[in-house]
Amino acid sequence: MITTRIDDVAQSCCSSFHGHIYNIRPLSMVHSRKLFYERLFNSQEKCPSHLEGISGQILDKCAGLPLAIIVILGVLAHRESEKELWEQVNDSIGHALRNSTIEDMVNIISLSYMDLPPHLKTCLLYLSIFPKDHAIEKENLIRRWIGEGFIHKRDGYTLHESGEMCFNELINRSLIRPMEIDRTFGDQVRVADFMTLFLISLYPRPSKRTL
Protein backbone atom coordinates (compact mmCIF):
# COMPACT_ATOMS: atom_id res chain seq x y z
CA MET A 1 0.00 0.00 0.00
CA ILE A 2 1.29 3.46 -0.94
CA THR A 3 0.05 6.66 0.65
CA THR A 4 0.37 10.06 -1.00
CA ARG A 5 -1.33 13.45 -1.15
CA ILE A 6 -0.35 13.94 -4.81
CA ASP A 7 -2.95 12.69 -7.28
CA ASP A 8 -0.45 12.20 -10.14
CA VAL A 9 1.66 9.90 -7.94
CA ALA A 10 -1.42 7.89 -6.99
CA GLN A 11 -2.43 7.54 -10.65
CA SER A 12 1.07 6.42 -11.63
CA CYS A 13 1.29 3.80 -8.86
CA CYS A 14 -2.19 2.55 -9.67
CA SER A 15 -1.37 1.93 -13.34
CA SER A 16 2.00 0.35 -12.55
CA PHE A 17 0.66 -2.22 -10.09
CA HIS A 18 -2.88 -2.69 -11.47
CA GLY A 19 -4.28 -1.38 -8.21
CA HIS A 20 -6.95 1.09 -7.34
CA ILE A 21 -7.04 4.46 -5.59
CA TYR A 22 -8.80 4.82 -2.26
CA ASN A 23 -9.61 8.42 -1.44
CA ILE A 24 -9.86 8.96 2.29
CA ARG A 25 -13.08 10.71 3.11
CA PRO A 26 -13.50 13.35 5.82
CA LEU A 27 -15.18 12.33 9.06
CA SER A 28 -18.94 12.68 9.23
CA MET A 29 -20.30 15.24 11.70
CA VAL A 30 -21.30 12.36 14.00
CA HIS A 31 -17.76 10.99 14.11
CA SER A 32 -16.30 14.49 14.29
CA ARG A 33 -18.39 15.20 17.40
CA LYS A 34 -17.41 11.84 18.88
CA LEU A 35 -13.69 12.60 18.48
CA PHE A 36 -14.12 16.18 19.68
CA TYR A 37 -16.26 15.54 22.76
CA GLU A 38 -14.58 12.35 23.93
CA ARG A 39 -11.14 13.98 23.92
CA LEU A 40 -12.38 17.09 25.77
CA PHE A 41 -15.13 15.81 28.05
CA ASN A 42 -14.67 11.98 27.99
CA SER A 43 -18.16 11.60 26.50
CA GLN A 44 -20.61 13.57 24.38
CA GLU A 45 -23.10 13.71 27.22
CA LYS A 46 -20.71 15.73 29.39
CA CYS A 47 -20.40 18.66 26.96
CA PRO A 48 -21.70 21.79 28.73
CA SER A 49 -24.89 23.03 27.07
CA HIS A 50 -23.51 26.57 26.65
CA LEU A 51 -20.67 25.19 24.49
CA GLU A 52 -22.71 23.00 22.15
CA GLY A 53 -23.44 25.79 19.66
CA ILE A 54 -19.90 27.15 19.42
CA SER A 55 -18.41 23.64 19.28
CA GLY A 56 -20.67 22.92 16.31
CA GLN A 57 -19.34 26.02 14.53
CA ILE A 58 -15.76 24.94 15.17
CA LEU A 59 -16.45 21.45 13.82
CA ASP A 60 -18.10 22.90 10.72
CA LYS A 61 -14.89 24.80 9.95
CA CYS A 62 -12.77 21.68 10.54
CA ALA A 63 -14.83 19.99 7.79
CA GLY A 64 -14.22 16.46 9.07
CA LEU A 65 -10.41 16.72 8.87
CA PRO A 66 -9.03 14.70 11.82
CA LEU A 67 -5.76 16.65 12.03
CA ALA A 68 -7.60 19.98 12.19
CA ILE A 69 -9.89 18.66 14.92
CA ILE A 70 -7.01 17.26 16.96
CA VAL A 71 -4.98 20.46 16.71
CA ILE A 72 -7.96 22.57 17.83
CA LEU A 73 -8.52 20.12 20.68
CA GLY A 74 -4.98 20.80 21.84
CA VAL A 75 -5.78 24.51 22.08
CA LEU A 76 -9.17 24.16 23.76
CA ALA A 77 -7.98 21.57 26.28
CA HIS A 78 -5.90 24.23 28.03
CA ARG A 79 -8.59 26.90 28.14
CA GLU A 80 -11.40 27.31 30.61
CA SER A 81 -14.86 26.22 29.46
CA GLU A 82 -16.02 29.77 28.84
CA LYS A 83 -17.95 30.51 25.67
CA GLU A 84 -16.06 33.76 25.05
CA LEU A 85 -12.70 31.94 25.01
CA TRP A 86 -14.03 29.30 22.62
CA GLU A 87 -15.40 32.04 20.36
CA GLN A 88 -11.91 33.55 20.20
CA VAL A 89 -10.56 30.21 18.99
CA ASN A 90 -13.41 29.90 16.48
CA ASP A 91 -12.66 33.38 15.10
CA SER A 92 -8.97 32.50 14.82
CA ILE A 93 -9.67 29.49 12.61
CA GLY A 94 -11.06 31.66 9.84
CA HIS A 95 -12.93 30.13 6.95
CA ALA A 96 -14.01 26.51 6.53
CA LEU A 97 -11.37 24.00 5.40
CA ARG A 98 -13.50 21.93 3.03
CA ASN A 99 -11.14 22.61 0.13
CA SER A 100 -8.06 22.71 2.32
CA THR A 101 -4.49 22.97 1.10
CA ILE A 102 -1.26 22.32 2.95
CA GLU A 103 -1.09 26.06 3.63
CA ASP A 104 -4.52 25.93 5.28
CA MET A 105 -3.39 23.16 7.61
CA VAL A 106 -0.20 25.04 8.45
CA ASN A 107 -2.36 28.02 9.44
CA ILE A 108 -4.44 25.78 11.70
CA ILE A 109 -1.32 24.36 13.34
CA SER A 110 0.06 27.87 13.84
CA LEU A 111 -2.93 28.60 16.09
CA SER A 112 -1.88 25.78 18.39
CA TYR A 113 1.76 26.87 18.25
CA MET A 114 0.99 30.48 19.14
CA ASP A 115 -0.99 29.28 22.15
CA LEU A 116 2.16 27.70 23.66
CA PRO A 117 4.19 29.36 26.42
CA PRO A 118 7.71 30.39 25.27
CA HIS A 119 9.57 27.43 26.79
CA LEU A 120 7.29 24.92 25.04
CA LYS A 121 7.68 26.73 21.72
CA THR A 122 11.45 26.28 22.04
CA CYS A 123 11.14 22.60 22.93
CA LEU A 124 8.77 21.99 20.02
CA LEU A 125 10.95 23.85 17.51
CA TYR A 126 13.88 21.63 18.49
CA LEU A 127 11.98 18.63 17.09
CA SER A 128 12.51 19.96 13.56
CA ILE A 129 16.04 18.47 13.64
CA PHE A 130 14.57 14.97 13.42
CA PRO A 131 13.63 13.40 10.05
CA LYS A 132 9.95 12.99 9.17
CA ASP A 133 8.32 10.02 10.95
CA HIS A 134 11.48 9.44 12.99
CA ALA A 135 10.93 7.61 16.29
CA ILE A 136 12.08 10.03 19.01
CA GLU A 137 13.07 8.45 22.30
CA LYS A 138 11.65 10.28 25.30
CA GLU A 139 14.68 10.03 27.61
CA ASN A 140 17.11 11.03 24.88
CA LEU A 141 14.96 14.01 23.91
CA ILE A 142 14.71 15.27 27.50
CA ARG A 143 18.48 14.99 27.90
CA ARG A 144 18.93 16.99 24.70
CA TRP A 145 16.54 19.67 25.90
CA ILE A 146 18.41 19.93 29.21
CA GLY A 147 21.79 20.02 27.45
CA GLU A 148 20.60 22.88 25.22
CA GLY A 149 19.40 24.83 28.25
CA PHE A 150 15.74 24.73 27.23
CA ILE A 151 14.50 23.26 30.50
CA HIS A 152 14.37 25.33 33.66
CA LYS A 153 13.96 23.65 37.02
CA ARG A 154 10.56 24.13 38.60
CA ASP A 155 10.07 24.45 42.33
CA GLY A 156 9.78 21.02 43.93
CA TYR A 157 10.90 19.16 40.80
CA THR A 158 14.23 17.96 39.43
CA LEU A 159 15.48 19.20 36.07
CA HIS A 160 14.57 15.86 34.47
CA GLU A 161 11.07 15.91 35.99
CA SER A 162 10.59 19.43 34.61
CA GLY A 163 11.61 18.08 31.20
CA GLU A 164 9.09 15.26 31.54
CA MET A 165 6.37 17.80 32.25
CA CYS A 166 7.20 19.63 29.01
CA PHE A 167 7.21 16.34 27.11
CA ASN A 168 3.82 15.32 28.49
CA GLU A 169 2.29 18.71 27.82
CA LEU A 170 3.24 18.53 24.14
CA ILE A 171 1.51 15.14 23.99
CA ASN A 172 -1.56 16.50 25.79
CA ARG A 173 -1.75 19.30 23.25
CA SER A 174 -1.60 16.72 20.42
CA LEU A 175 1.55 18.30 18.99
CA ILE A 176 3.53 15.04 19.19
CA ARG A 177 2.14 11.53 18.93
CA PRO A 178 3.04 8.75 21.39
CA MET A 179 4.07 5.41 19.91
CA GLU A 180 3.83 1.94 21.39
CA ILE A 181 6.23 1.43 24.29
CA ASP A 182 9.45 -0.23 23.16
CA ARG A 183 11.06 -2.38 25.86
CA THR A 184 14.50 -1.53 24.52
CA PHE A 185 14.15 2.21 23.96
CA GLY A 186 11.26 3.08 26.27
CA ASP A 187 8.63 5.71 25.46
CA GLN A 188 8.85 7.14 21.97
CA VAL A 189 6.97 9.79 20.01
CA ARG A 190 6.67 10.97 16.42
CA VAL A 191 6.01 14.37 14.92
CA ALA A 192 3.12 14.43 12.41
CA ASP A 193 3.98 15.29 8.79
CA PHE A 194 2.11 18.59 8.86
CA MET A 195 3.76 19.57 12.13
CA THR A 196 7.22 18.91 10.68
CA LEU A 197 6.32 21.07 7.67
CA PHE A 198 5.14 23.84 9.95
CA LEU A 199 8.24 23.78 12.16
CA ILE A 200 10.53 23.97 9.14
CA SER A 201 8.50 26.89 7.76
CA LEU A 202 9.28 28.92 10.89
CA TYR A 203 12.97 29.12 10.06
CA PRO A 204 13.88 32.09 7.81
CA ARG A 205 15.34 31.19 4.46
CA PRO A 206 18.93 32.34 3.88
CA SER A 207 19.11 35.46 1.76
CA LYS A 208 20.83 35.26 -1.63
CA ARG A 209 24.10 37.08 -1.86
CA THR A 210 25.73 38.43 -4.96
CA LEU A 211 29.37 37.43 -5.16
Results as ranks from 00 to 15, higher is better:
Asp8Gly: 14
Asn99Gln: 05
His50Pro: 06
Asp193Pro: 04
Glu137His: 01
Tyr203Val: 13
Glu139Trp: 05
Lys34His: 14
His119Pro: 02
Thr184Trp: 00
Leu120Ser: 05
Asn140Thr: 03
Asn140Val: 02
Arg205Thr: 15
Gln57Asn: 08
Leu116His: 06
Ile93Gly: 01
Thr3Val: 08
Ala68Met: 01
Ser100Leu: 14
Lys208Tyr: 08
His152Cys: 06
Asn140Cys: 04
Val191Trp: 04
Ser92Met: 12
Leu197Asp: 15
Ile142Lys: 08
Phe167Glu: 04
Asn140Asp: 07
Ile151Glu: 13
Phe194Gly: 01
Asn42Thr: 10
Ser43Ala: 11
Ala96Trp: 01
Pro48Glu: 10
Leu120Tyr: 05
Gln11Asn: 15
His20Ser: 06
Leu125Asp: 13
Asp8Val: 14
Arg33Phe: 02
Lys121Gly: 04
Arg144His: 07
Ser32Lys: 13
Ala96Asp: 01
His119Met: 05
Lys121Ala: 07
Ala68His: 01
Ala135His: 07
Glu87Asn: 15
Met1Val: 11
Leu175Pro: 06
Glu87Ala: 13
Phe167Ser: 04
Lys153Asn: 13
Trp86Lys: 13
Val106Gln: 11
Gly163His: 09
Leu97Val: 05
Ser28Leu: 07
Leu141Cys: 15
Asp91Arg: 11
Asn90His: 15
Ser43His: 07
Leu116Gln: 11
Tyr157Gln: 12
Ile146Val: 09
Leu73Tyr: 01
Ile24Thr: 01
Ile146Asp: 07
Pro117Val: 06
Ser49Gly: 02
Glu137Asn: 02
Asp7Ile: 08
Ile102Ala: 15
Ile2Arg: 05
Ile136Gln: 04
Phe41Thr: 06
Val191Met: 06
Thr158Tyr: 04
Glu38Leu: 09
Thr210Pro: 10
Gln188Cys: 01
Cys47Val: 15
Glu164His: 09
Asn168Glu: 14
Leu73Lys: 02
Ile6Lys: 05
Ile146Gln: 07
Asn107Tyr: 02
Ser110Arg: 15
Pro131Trp: 00
Gly163Thr: 10
Leu65Glu: 06
Phe194Met: 13
Leu170Ile: 13
Lys121Met: 12
Glu169His: 10
Leu59Tyr: 11
Glu103Met: 14
Val189Leu: 04
Pro131Ser: 08
Phe150Gly: 03
Ala135Gln: 06
Glu164Pro: 08
Glu164Cys: 12
Arg177Pro: 01
Glu137Lys: 00
Tyr203His: 15
Leu199Asp: 03
Asp60Gln: 04
Trp86Val: 10
Asn99Gly: 05
Gly156Gln: 13
Ser128Trp: 02
Leu67Ala: 07
Leu120His: 10
Ser128Tyr: 01
Val71Lys: 00
Leu211Trp: 11
Thr122Glu: 09
Leu76Asn: 04
Ser43Val: 07
Thr184Lys: 02
Gly149Arg: 03
Leu141Glu: 12
Glu38Arg: 07
